[in-house]
Design a protein around this nucleic acid. Structure first.
Length: 587
RNA sequence: GGUCCCGUAGCUCAGCUGGAUAGAGCAGCUGACUUCUAAUCAGCAGGUCCCAGGUUCGAAUCCUGGCGGGAUCACCA
């Protein structure tokens, strides 16, 4: 149940009624009508702009029209008060019974509270991580991984049919580099003194196991000066082991993906869907042979070569320059493969595609967007979520990292140090396009300024209250589960009603966050809900009559606990969307 | 130089895709706290929403042009 949608419908009904009364002209439609929580709670529970958006068509003053609508709304039994304010806002104050009904709804629906309706015809593909299979995941991958995972959770909860996908870049020249690096480790594993790993190869120790595995399976049979002899074998083994490592890295953060799509698979054997994609575009007249200008404003790459090449007319779709598809050695550019890949996703039925990328790839958006538009005749919806940099701190001091020296911080190091929950929550406690500071010390502190703790503690406190109540009133938990609206009648404290309003906002929030592809809104909401709850708990110190557990009043305790349990349920649901554990207790 | 992102309280950031008197945490100040599980709670103070135009009943939010910061520019991935 979404309160705001519910009242949008009721206001719509009121408009229809006014049309029937002849007050509004036939065919009046409420375009841009909204029902929202007012910023200032003193304005009521719900505010609508209906009168203001209709005034022009109705040729009436907004306030007069508002009064007519108000008249209709006053007849609604859920509405306690209707007020016209400001330029023509209609402010509604709902009956307390209505808000208590929300508590009942949460208890009844449990973790389904806030869930969106099925959306037939919307098949969403969320692609995230897609790190090169050349080494372990490092901290730069973490944000996108968590973001994509949470976004997929959110979309699924909001009712979309969602697939989670990882695109394996296993076809480019970086894989040859990987193989040559692994080959060094292979020779090393055979007892050879290899010295330093040559410049340009991957120096990391994580390739040692690959070398050892190769010795175990092939002995010294791969030793050869001719690369083409060992390359295929080493490629297969290395890629497999790198992907296993990456999967296990992802598992430490509880990141799940359904499909691992291999770039190479598109051009293996006799099939070549990259070529097919290019031909399809050629058929549409979007491919030509031509020359490109050297890049401007920056020094051209040393190996810049002015030559005629196969180009895609991405400028027709808003890109800055047309893009090359085939390299001088005859292989496909990364972009050509990517084009085919996104096309493939569309052919698999995904009419909504969301890619999660790092900030350094932002300049790549236009060309992929152009390709998708061209290949799907603009039928596919494409959104790239760009995650800005994560800066690491420890106790306020920047953590030094040098990519050149190879001292990057791995995902596993971060998770090992602070645990998965703080990592996941903090990566989502900022909108994706803003840079993010991650402080190893701050995220494990047990204090309000650490939102992870504050929210998790809220959930633990709910569980604790239930346990305590069970000691005072054995069997009360069962009563709480089945409480009806009449039983909640005693919940009339302003703080309690405030919590109910917050709970009622959850379905709308889920809907909006999913629509905007912004999981961070869930994190901020949970912080606010936890804040409401902790505040109410603390009010019981000064005013014992407000305590959740009242030894002298079992019925009141049941009602209060129903609200407490509802808070716990929504905290649990929200944390699950973020992929964060909701603890029963804090130790 | 082009493109993309960011610019909101002293600091770190929200602001529900156009609503009313712009919010939270930290830091500062004032008070409460031998606890229904502690690590908090209540309050005060703090603002040229980068600037200038525009769109309209109404702009932090949308458009245009600037300013400042970051990222990026390829036959790499």
């Amino acid at each position: 149940m979404n309160v705001f949608v519910l009242f949008e419908e009721r206001i719509d009904d009121a408009i229809t009624a006014l049309v029937a009364d002849g007050v509004l002209p036939e065919g009046t439609e409420a375009r841009g009508l909204t029902v929202e929580p007012p910023r200032d709670p003193s304005h009521g529970d719900l505010a609508s702009n209906a009168a203001m958006v209709l005034a022009k068509a109705a040729k009436m003053k907004p306030r007069d029209l508002a009064e007519q609508l108000a008249e209709k709304l006053r007849a609604d039994p859920d509405v306690n008060e209707v007020e016209i304010a400001g330029p023509g806002f209609i402010n509604l104050r709902l009956a307390p019974e209505f808000w208590r009904g929300v508590v009942g709804a949460v208890l009844k629906q449990g973790q389904n509270f806030g869930k969106g309706p099925d959306r037939p015809g919307k098949k969403v593909n969320v692609e995230y991580v897609s790190a090169n299979p050349t080494g372990p995941l490092h901290v730069g991958h973490v944000r996108g991984a968590v973001f994509g995972d949470a976004l997929a959770n959110l979309l699924a909860f909001a009712g979309y049919d969602v697939a989670r996908e990882y695109y394996i870049n296993d076809a480019g020249s970086q894989i040859d580099t990987l193989c040559r690096s692994a080959y060094m480790r292979y020779r090393e594993a055979l007892g050879e003194e290899i010295g330093d790993i040559p410049e340009g190869l991957y120096p990391g120790d994580y390739l040692k196991p690959v070398g050892e595995a190769l010795v175990a399976s092939h002995g010294d049979a791969l030793l050869s000066d001719d690369e083409t002899e060992w390359m295929p074998v080493i490629r297969e083994v290395s890629l497999h082991m790198m992907m296993e490592m990456i999967r296990s890295d992802l598992a430490t953060l509880n990141i799940k993906q359904d499909v691992f799509f291999s770039e190479r698979s598109m051009i293996q054997g006799d099939k070549d869907i990259v070529a097919a994609t290019i031909e399809e575009l050629r058929g549409k007249g979007m491919i030509y042979e031509g020359r490109l200008e050297p890049p401007k404003g920056t020094t051209p790459p040393e190996d810049w070569e002015d030559r005629e090449q196969t180009l895609f007319r991405s400028t027709d779709f808003g890109d800055d320059v047309d893009r090359a598809l085939i390299k001088s050695d005859g292989t496909y550019t990364y972009f050509a493969s990517d084009m085919a890949y996104h096309h493939d996703k569309y052919l698999r039925g995904f009419n909504v595609q969301i890619d999660v990328w790092g900030a350094d790839h932002a300049g790549y958006i236009k060309r992929v967007d152009a390709a998708i538009q061209a290949l799907t005749d603009k039928q596919a919806e494409f959104d790239v979520k760009v995650c800005q940099l994560v800066r690491l701190y420890r106790g306020g001091e920047p953590v030094k990292m040098s990519k050149r020296a190879g001292t990057f911080v791995t995902l596993r190091e971060v998770v090992d140090e602070v645990g998965p929950d703080p990592v996941r929550f903090m990566m989502l406690y900022r909108k994706n396009e803003a840079p993010l500071d991650f402080d190893f010390k701050a995220v494990t502190e047990t204090a309000k300024e650490n939102p992870v703790f504050y929210v998790q503690y809220g959930h633990a406190r709910v569980c604790s209250a239930m346990r305590n109540a069970e000691e005072t009133f054995p069997g009360i938990a069962e009563k709480v589960k089945t409480v009806n609206v009449d039983g909640l009648g005693q919940l009339d404290d302003e703080g309690e009603l405030g919590i109910m309003r917050r709970l009622a906002a959850f379905p709308r929030l889920v809907e909006a966050a999913a629509h905007a592809h912004e999981p961070h809104r869930i994190a901020f909401y949970l912080y606010e809900l936890a804040g409401d709850f902790h505040a109410q708990y603390n009010r019981g110190k000064d005013q014992p009559q407000l305590r959740f557990i009242r030894d002298d009043d079992r019925d009141l305790t049941i009602a209060r606990l129903a609200l407490v349990q509802a808070v716990g349920t929504v905290l649990y649901t929200g944390l699950s969307l973020l992929g964060v554990h909701a603890p029963q207790e804090m130790r």
